[in-house]
Nucleic acid binder design. Structure first.
Length: 505
DNA sequence: TTAGGGTTAG
C-alpha cells in the first residue's frame, strides 16, 4: 500500500465525527470485496476482466432467463473460450443464488463446443438442492439421466440435500431408483443412504432400512461405523455399544474409528472416566488410539477449560508413540497458549512441527497469533502475520484478524483497525462474515463512533447478511443518543421487515 | 463411503 493511501486512511479515520455520507463511501470502499478470481496467474488481468463482466451481469438477483439473455448478448462473453474451471468457479460464486447459477449454466451450454464436466453438473444439482428447489433439482437430474451423466456422487448430493431439507423419504426413493440411473444397489450405495439418514438424526429409519436390505446387501465395517455415529449423534451410547457387539457378531473387528466415535460421545457427556476406560480398552484390543482420538479428547477438555488435564492427554499420546498430525498440533498449541505456556507453544510451532515434518496451516498460525494478542505481544503477532503472508504455505482468513482487531480496539487505535480491515479486503480478498460485522459494530458503538458502526450495518444489509436482534438494539440505542434521525428510522424499519437472527446458543 | 472446531467474552 502506498504511503499516500495510508495517510489518506489515517486522516479519514482520525476524523472522529465523520458525516454519514462521507463515511459511508469510505467504509464501502473499505470492506466490500472486489470481485475477482480466487486464484491469480500471469494472465490474471484478462481473466479478471471476464470474471468481472460475467459476475456483474449475472450477480444482481434477476431471473435465470435474464442472466442467460444478458450473457448471450454480451460481446466479451461471446468471445470467451470457456474452461471447465471458469464455469466451476462461477457456479461456486453463485452457490447461494440458484437463479444466477442456472442462468450461467444455460449460457455456458449455449457456447460453442462447451460440454459440462460432471463436477459442474453435480454442483448445479447441489445449488438447487441447497435452495430447496426440489422440482427444479429433479428436472435437472432427469436431464442428466438422459445424458447418462449421473454418478454416485450426484446421488450423494441429491440424497444429502433432500435429507438436510427434511425430506428424508425422498432420499430413500432416490436409492430405490438407482437402477434407472444406471447405478447399482450395493454396499457402497446403501452405506451412502444410511450415512445420510444417520447424519440427519434419522438413525431409527436407517436401522429399519438396513433390516429390510440385509437379505440382499451385505453390511461392512463402514455400515456399522455409520450406525455407531448415528446412535452417538442421537446421544444413545447404549445402542452404539450394542452396535459394536453386533459388528463383532458379523465377524468384523471394531476399529479405531468405531471407538473414537464413542469416545467423542462420552466427551460430550463429560463422562471422562469412561473415556479413559475406553482408551485402555483400545490399547488392549490392538486398535490403539490415534491422533484423531487424542485430539477429540483434548478439544473437549479445553472446552471445559481443563487445560492441564488436556496437556496430560497430550503427554500420554507422545508416550504411546502415536504420530501427531496438523490438527493435533494445532490443538496442542491452543492448549499451551490457554495454559499460559507461551514458550512451550513456540517450541511446538518452531521446533517440533518442522522436525516431525508436520505441515502448518492457517489455524496453526491463527492460534499463535491469538496467543500473542492475548498476552499483549502484538508485535510478535504482526510479525507472524507477515511470515504467514510470505511463506505461501497458507493464507490468512477472518479468524487471523479477529484477535488483531480486538487488540486495536482495546488500545483505542481505530486508525489501525481501518488499516487492518483494508488489508483484509484488498490484500487477501476476504469478505467480512456475520460474526465479524457483529463484532465490529459492537466495538465501534462502544468506542462512541456509531457512525462507523451504522455504515457497517448498512453494508451488512446490502450484502444480504442478516444482523442479530441484539446488534440492531445496541446500534439503535447509540444512534438515538446522537440524534441520528435518518439512521434511527432506517434501523427501526429493518427491525420490522427483516427476519432477524436470534443470538447464537 | 465411516472419526478430530476455535473464538472476538466480562
Amino acid at each position: 500500500m502506498s504511503r499516500l493511501v495510508q495517510n489518506r486512511i489515517a486522516n479519514t479515520w482520525l476524523r472522529l465525527k465523520p458525516s454519514i455520507a462521507l463515511s459511508s463511501v469510505f467504509i464501502k470502499n473499505l470492506t466490500t470485496v472486489p470481485e475477482q478470481l480466487p486464484e491469480t496467474n500471469d494472465e490474471s488481468s484478462q481473466s479478471e476482466k471476464i470474471w468481472n463482466v460475467i459476475v456483474g451481469k449475472a450477480g444482481d438477483r434477476v431471473s435465470e432467463d435474464e442472466v442467460f439473455h444478458r450473457l448471450s448478448n454480451d460481446e466479451l462473453c461471446n468471445k470467451v473460450t470457456l474452461s471447465d474451471s471458469l464455469v466451476h468457479k462461477l457456479l461456486h460464486r453463485f452457490r447461494d443464488d440458484w437463479k444466477s447459477a442456472i442462468g450461467v449454466l444455460k449460457w455456458a451450454e449455449s457456447c460453442k463446443g462447451h460440454k459440462h464436466s460432471s463436477e459442474c453438473y453435480d454442483l448445479a444439482v447441489d445449488i438447487l438442492g441447497k435452495a430447496k428447489k426440489w422440482d427444479r433439482m429433479t428436472e435437472f437430474v432427469e436431464r442428466m439421466r438422459g445424458d447418462k451423466v449421473v454418478t454416485l456422487n450426484t446421488i450423494a448430493k441429491i440424497m444429502r440435500r433432500f435429507a438436510g431439507g427434511g425430506e428424508w423419504e425422498e432420499a430413500v426413493k432416490v436409492f430405490d431408483r438407482l437402477g434407472e440411473f444406471g447405478l447399482v444397489k450395493d454396499t457402497e450405495s446403501m452405506n451412502l443412504l444410511l450415512d445420510t439418514l444417520c447424519k440427519e438424526k434419522r438413525v431409527e429409519q436407517a436401522r429399519a432400512i438396513l433390516l429390510e436390505l440385509k437379505g440382499h446387501i451385505t453390511p461392512d465395517v463402514y455400515t456399522f461405523n455409520i450406525f455407531i455415529h448415528g446412535w452417538c449423534k442421537a446421544n444413545r451410547v447404549e445402542e452404539a455399544l450394542w452396535t459394536i457387539q453386533e459388528m463383532k457378531g458379523h465377524g468384523f473387528r471394531p476399529c479405531v474409528i468405531s471407538y473414537t466415535t464413542i469416545i467423542r460421545c462420552y466427551c460430550q457427556q463429560s463422562e471422562f472416566i469412561k473415556v479413559y476406560e475406553m482408551l485402555s480398552e483400545m490399547e488392549a484390543n490392538g486398535s490403539p488410539p490415534n491422533s484423531v482420538t487424542y485430539t477429540t479428547i483434548m478439544s473437549s477438555l479445553n472446552a471445559q477449560k481443563e487445560f492441564e488435564e488436556s496437556l496430560r492427554v497430550a503427554a500420554r499420546m507422545k508416550r504411546s508413540g502415536c504420530v501427531p498430525d496438523t490438527l493435533f498440533n494445532n490443538c496442542l498449541i491452543h492448549t499451551l497458549a490457554r495454559a499460559g505456556k507461551l514458550e512451550e507453544a513456540e517450541r511446538v510451532f518452531r521446533v517440533e512441527m518442522p522436525e516431525l515434518g508436520v505441515l502448518v496451516n492457517t489455524s496453526t498460525y491463527n492460534s499463535m497469533i491469538a496467543m500473542y494478542c492475548h498476552h499483549d505481544e502484538e508485535e510478535k503477532a504482526v510479525e507472524l502475520l507477515k511470515e504467514m503472508e510470505s511463506s505461501k504455505v497458507c493464507n490468512p482468513d477472518v479468524h487471523t484478524y479477529h484477535p488483531l482487531l480486538r487488540s486495536c480496539f482495546k488500545r483505542g487505535d481505530v486508525v489501525e483497525v481501518g488499516r487492518l480491515l483494508k488489508e483484509m479486503v484488498t490484500k487477501h480478498h476476504l469478505s467480512l462474515d456475520e460474526s465479524t460485522y457483529t463484532f465490529l459494530i459492537q466495538r465501534f458503538c462502544r468506542a462512541n463512533i456509531c457512525e462507523w458502526a451504522y455504515c457497517l450495518f448498512e453494508e451488512m444489509i446490502s450484502q444480504d447478511i442478516t444482523p442479530r436482534h441484539k446488534t440492531c438494539l445496541l446500534l439503535l440505542e447509540e444512534v438515538k443518543k446522537k440524534n441520528m434521525h435518518e439512521a434511527t428510522e432506517r434501523i427501526e424499519h429493518i427491525m420490522k421487515t427483516v427476519k432477524l437472527t436470534a443470538p447464537v446458543k
